[in-house]
């Protein structure tokens, strides 16, 4: 895509966001919602600019980011490893398939109370929850990608002298990269949601906690700041992942 096309796409993409903010402003301006409960966007954004400079708020962001990264990274490593193993080894697949079928549809947030009791209120419970939730989309995407690798790619590599045990890393993994990265993208979005959710339920810090605390004390402006912050965090992380993706998949037709 050329520069002009990217710019025009970006401008088009801004339209719904601008409309949303306009709607928000309209709700406040025309008195559909009391200003104390729904503050105008301008007020929220200026408060946010102020908060982003404060150390306390930065620490909340750091706590959330750390949990998000830790959980997402563990989920990626586990998901890719298990997905690949299941795709190439029928015995592993026989073990993994039933457990994935049972656990994948389970609302992982239901495990959170148990996690809190088991590992406490600190980072671990949030990281584990993020891991559980992000794991399945990555695992399933990896499994799907690795089990649909074109047979003739594998044959070509074997004929060139690649021993069977190296086929996994030299052919299957790179060939499955588009699927794996799609799984990671979904996993990342889920991670953003889940880390925030976990912090809202029970936490002593983090963006989710900041939101709940503000809501409980009717500080409407402070309630909206973490909300917008987490969506910006999501936007930035997704953008970074997209950069990694387009670099890694530069040879693939669909990327």
């Amino acid at each position: 895509m050329n520069g002009r096309a990217i710019t025009s796409d970006l401008l088009l993409g801004m339209i719904p966001i601008v409309l949303l903010v306009a709607l928000w402003q309209a709700l406040v301006s025309f008195g559909y919602a009391p200003v104390t409960l729904l503050p105008p966007p301008g007020q929220v954004f200026s408060r946010m600019a102020q908060q982003l400079l404060s150390t306390t708020f930065q620490q909340e962001i750091a706590a959330t980011l750390f949990r998000l990264f830790a959980g997402f990274s563990i989920a990626t490593v586990l998901g890719v490893t298990i997905g690949l193993a299941a795709a190439v080894n029928p015995a592993v697949n026989a073990v993994v398939r039933p457990i994935v079928r049972v656990l994948a549809p389970l609302p992982k947030v239901a495990l959170y109370p148990a996690l809190l009791l088991l590992v406490g209120f600190g980072h671990q419970s949030k990281i584990l929850l993020v891991t559980f939730d992000a794991l399945f989309p990555i695992l399933l995407a990896t499994y799907y990608g690795a089990s649909t690798v074109e047979q003739k790619l594998i044959w070509s590599a074997m004929a060139a002298g690649t021993p069977p045990r190296e086929i996994l890393f030299k052919v299957v993994l790179p060939a499955a990269a588009p699927s794996i990265l799609t799984g990671c993208r979904i996993g990342l979005v889920i991670s953003c949601i889940v880390v925030f959710l976990a912090e809202m339920i029970t936490s002593t810090d983090g963006l989710g906690h900041a939101l709940v605390t503000a809501a409980r004390t009717f500080q409407a402006v402070d309630m909206f700041v973490p909300l917008i912050t987490i969506s910006l965090v999501g936007l930035i992380l997704n953008g970074l992942l997209e950069l990694v993706r387009s670099y890694l998949l530069r040879g693939f037709p669909e990327a």
Partner: peptide, 21 residues
């Protein structure tokens, strides 16, 4: 008994590695 570099295939589908130049 298996593939080997003494016999080189060329397939209709090309089967080039998309991640390599």
């Amino acid at each position: 008994t298996g593939p080997g570099p003494d016999r080189g295939p060329v397939f209709q589908e090309f089967a080039l590695f998309p991640w390599k130049s």
